[in-house]
Amino acid sequence: MKLEDLNSLAKAYREAMPYLAIGVQMAAMVIIMFLVGKWADEKFSTQPWLMIAGIIFGISAGFYHFFKFVTAESKKSNTSSKNEN
């Protein structure tokens, strides 16, 4: 593989990676909050309410971060494309 190919591959990954990562992060937020809720439920024996609350919080946080990221990213790509022109 030539170095130029590698660099263009790296560029493609660099540009696509944030979008791929945000999906995983969204899932991660739900999973983390699910685990935290489950742990808290066991600790305070409030099954299953804290787990449900955790999942809802995780989902909403996931969406919040997703939209925040997408708007920031599209703004960034707009300004960079303007700069190129």
């Binding site: 995983v24 991660a28 919080f57 971060h65």
Partner: peptide
């Protein structure tokens, strides 16, 4: 604040799981 803090933690968490 919890939402933002959760965002800070999920980034490395996703790294770890990936």
């Amino acid at each position: 604040i919890p939402i933002e803090v959760l965002g800070l933690f999920t980034k490395p968490f996703a790294l770890c799981i990936r």
